[in-house]
Simulated scan of single mutants.
Amino acid sequence: MRILHLLASPFFSGPAENVALLALAQREAGHEVTVAVDRRRKDVPAEEPAVPRFRELGLLDEGGLELSVKSPPWNMWSDLRRLRARRVDVVHSHFSHDHLLARWGRPRGAVLVRSLHAPRSLRASMPAADAYTVPASSLLPRLREQGRTAEVLPALVDPRFHPAEDRSALRRELGLTGEPLVGMVSTFQPSRRHSVGVDAFALYRKQRPEARFVLVGDGGLLEATRRQVEERGLSEAVTFAGYQQGDAFVRWLRALDEVWLLGLGNDWSARAAAQARACGVRVVAVEEGALPDLADARVATPTPEAVVTAALSGQRAPVAHPTNERIAGDMLALYERARRSR
């Protein structure tokens, strides 16, 4: 099967890693798979660029698509013509720009699948497709009620995410002390609720005075969070690890006892929760997106008190998260069902 993923983003963040892992698993299953990304926006200083990563993985599509929301109309028209001339069996689009392009530039005979990565993309005005995926089971009924073929596309996990062989040694290498070691691993933006996390940790330390808080990431609210930590008198108990990626991110995540996931950004598959569980890290999470299916302890209302109650509960949930191979197989089956129903 010849599969072309469309990802109109210059960043290797948000859904991009999930798309890469899905494409790799599909390729390992014996299919011809490439990923087209935004080739227009080259200056991305704040985040990791997508082009080098997809090229390194051998997945980067070289079919000439610019695939950018910043493209002028004549370049978009060129993309339509180039896409329509392609010989592929499946076009799997991941953003609204991709979907619109694929709707009108679909190659002859190709199946069109649209992945919705956040609920805001699920709207009546979205173009038609042969099948859809959503990041969480709670979003399926809205599509199925409309008679659309749809399945959940869960978070895929890189094989690098597994428990540390010697967590104590790893913590010494990272300069971390204290127990339990609690972390938040996300961009500092309002939806991630770092302010709730800091206030919750202040309450948590009253019960667990030796606890330490590790905040991994960067973003617009980083300095405001630093000030909040200082105001709560927590500076000696909080580590700001900065933005981490690749193997470095895996090491910081493995070092934790538990992670607090208090909100989602532009990818509701809750990939960080799946990664944490793969590393043997306990997950305390709010009830958003796919987080309820991956959490050990759920936070019904995102308040400091509710976070502390969940963290102190000690609950552990037996979650059997599907393998990347299983997820890729399910997507291939979805493509086939969509082809038969056309």
Score class of each variant (00 low, 15 high):
residue 224 A to K: 15
residue 237 A to W: 00
residue 219 G to P: 03
residue 221 L to S: 12
residue 214 V to H: 08
residue 212 R to C: 10
residue 242 G to E: 06
residue 215 L to G: 06
residue 237 A to F: 01
residue 229 V to E: 05
residue 232 R to H: 06
residue 232 R to S: 01
residue 212 R to H: 14
residue 222 L to A: 12
residue 242 G to Y: 05
residue 212 R to P: 02
residue 240 F to P: 06
residue 212 R to K: 13
residue 209 P to D: 13
residue 231 E to A: 09
residue 236 E to D: 14
residue 225 T to Y: 07
residue 231 E to C: 00
residue 216 V to K: 09
residue 243 Y to C: 02
residue 222 L to P: 12
residue 232 R to I: 05
residue 229 V to Q: 11
residue 243 Y to D: 12
residue 219 G to W: 02
residue 228 Q to D: 07
residue 241 A to W: 00
residue 239 T to M: 03
residue 229 V to S: 08
residue 216 V to F: 06
residue 220 G to N: 10
residue 219 G to Q: 12
residue 240 F to T: 02
residue 221 L to Y: 13
residue 234 L to V: 02
residue 240 F to C: 03
residue 233 G to E: 09
residue 216 V to S: 00
residue 213 F to K: 08
residue 209 P to Y: 11
residue 212 R to I: 04
residue 241 A to E: 01
residue 214 V to E: 13
residue 217 G to N: 08
residue 223 E to V: 04
residue 231 E to G: 00
residue 216 V to T: 00
residue 225 T to C: 09
residue 238 V to E: 03
residue 216 V to Q: 04
residue 240 F to D: 08
residue 227 R to V: 13
residue 218 D to G: 14
residue 213 F to P: 11
residue 209 P to I: 13
residue 219 G to N: 10
residue 233 G to I: 01
residue 227 R to G: 15
residue 213 F to V: 06
residue 222 L to F: 15
residue 243 Y to M: 13
residue 243 Y to A: 11
residue 229 V to K: 06
residue 235 S to D: 12
residue 230 E to N: 11
residue 239 T to W: 01
residue 229 V to F: 02
residue 241 A to L: 07
residue 217 G to D: 06
residue 232 R to F: 05
residue 234 L to H: 10
residue 223 E to R: 10
residue 225 T to P: 05
residue 240 F to R: 07
residue 231 E to M: 05
residue 221 L to M: 14
residue 226 R to N: 05
residue 232 R to K: 08
residue 214 V to R: 00
residue 235 S to E: 11
residue 236 E to M: 06
residue 229 V to C: 11
residue 228 Q to I: 14
residue 225 T to W: 09
residue 219 G to Y: 05
residue 225 T to S: 07
residue 215 L to V: 04
residue 222 L to Q: 07
residue 231 E to Q: 11
residue 232 R to P: 05
residue 228 Q to Y: 13
residue 243 Y to K: 03
residue 234 L to F: 05
residue 227 R to A: 15
residue 224 A to Y: 08
residue 230 E to Y: 02
residue 214 V to A: 12
residue 239 T to E: 06
residue 238 V to S: 00
residue 230 E to D: 11
residue 238 V to D: 04
residue 237 A to G: 01
residue 230 E to I: 07
residue 221 L to Q: 15
residue 231 E to V: 09
residue 215 L to F: 07
residue 223 E to W: 08
residue 232 R to D: 00
residue 234 L to D: 00
residue 232 R to N: 02
residue 213 F to Q: 12
residue 224 A to F: 04
residue 212 R to V: 13
residue 238 V to A: 05
residue 223 E to T: 10
residue 231 E to D: 15
residue 227 R to Q: 14
residue 216 V to I: 02
residue 233 G to D: 02
residue 240 F to G: 09
residue 212 R to T: 15
residue 242 G to N: 02
residue 210 E to V: 04
residue 209 P to W: 08
residue 218 D to P: 09
residue 220 G to Q: 13
residue 225 T to D: 00
residue 240 F to K: 07
residue 213 F to R: 10
residue 242 G to A: 10
residue 232 R to Y: 03
residue 237 A to T: 03
residue 233 G to M: 02
residue 239 T to V: 06
residue 233 G to Q: 03
residue 222 L to M: 04
residue 226 R to G: 07
residue 222 L to W: 10
residue 228 Q to W: 14
residue 228 Q to P: 09
residue 235 S to W: 00
residue 235 S to A: 13
residue 219 G to T: 07
residue 238 V to I: 06
residue 224 A to W: 07
residue 242 G to Q: 01
residue 239 T to Q: 04
residue 211 A to M: 02
